[in-house]
């Protein structure tokens, strides 16, 4: 109950004004985000803001079922952060270290379980935020996930500019207008390499849509 209230207050009275008034996000094709779970929302990762923006940009019917996939060794550290991650963000924790997982289980098992329960998961195939405003290679976990759930749509969401507003390792939030471009959903086609190629190509074409300012 407390967690649900906190989640509602945090997103509607803190994140929403920050994202839409202080920053300003230009969203293209919001209608391509599914209204219902299960779904896999795939985004490039520049900043903690990516998750926040994506969550409030989603339709209200989906918001309740939204769960960002996040590394347990980062998000389940300390009492408060753990509570915040579990109840406010409602993350699907991934245990990257073998010794933290139950014997013989796969790191993606909790994600599969969340999808089976009808959740829409937010997945960052780059694995980490990395250098702001630079896309790195996608890890193959997303292909494995899609193979396990071939009927679940994989929706690509491209972000630009949030890495300038709040890059990794900095606490000062500076206003910048940001872009969020949603692409047509993808489905598993039977081959891992082919799937990854399609996903990467989809992101490349989304990234060419906007104007990319100089920033170094």
């Amino acid at each position: 109950m407390l967690g649900k209230t906190a989640r509602f207050l945090f997103f509607n009275f803190f994140i929403r004004p920050v994202v839409f008034l202080y920053l300003g996000v230009n969203i293209r094709r919001r209608n391509l985000i599914p209204k219902q779970g299960p779904a896999i929302l795939v985004a490039n990762h520049n900043s903690h803001l990516d998750t926040m923006v994506l969550m409030i940009a989603c339709p209200r019917s989906l918001f309740r079922h939204l769960r960002p996939v996040a590394a347990a060794d980062y998000w389940l550290k300390g009492k408060f952060l753990t509570w915040f991650s579990r109840h406010v963000l409602n993350i699907v924790p991934i245990f990257r270290n073998k010794e933290d997982r139950p014997e013989g289980s796969d790191p993606l098992d909790p994600v599969s379980q969340a999808l089976d329960e009808g959740s829409a998961v937010i997945f960052f195939p780059e694995g980490s935020r990395g250098e702001p405003e630079q896309m790195t290679g996608f890890k193959r976990g997303i292909a494995i996930l899609s193979e396990r759930h071939p009927e679940v749509p994989v929706v690509p969401v491209y972000f630009q500019g949030l890495g300038r507003a709040l890059p990794r390792g900095e606490g000062l939030l500076v206003p910048f207008l940001c872009d969020m471009f949603v692409g047509e959903p993808l489905y598993w086609g039977g081959d891992e390499e082919e799937f990854m190629r399609r996903l990467v190509r989809r992101f490349e074409s989304l990234s060419r849509e906007g104007y990319k300012p100089q920033w170094e």
């Binding site: 500019g161 500076v174 206003p175 910048f176 207008l177 300012p213």
Partner: peptide, 26 residues
């Protein structure tokens, strides 16, 4: 002014080291 400046600073080339300068300008 805020919206105009934000559009300008988003489009114009800026440097990462100047993020705090940008904040003061706002």
């Amino acid at each position: 002014s805020f919206l105009g400046l934000k559009e300008f600073l988003t489009l114009a080339p800026t440097r990462r080291v100047d993020r705090n300068v940008l904040f003061y300008i706002y």
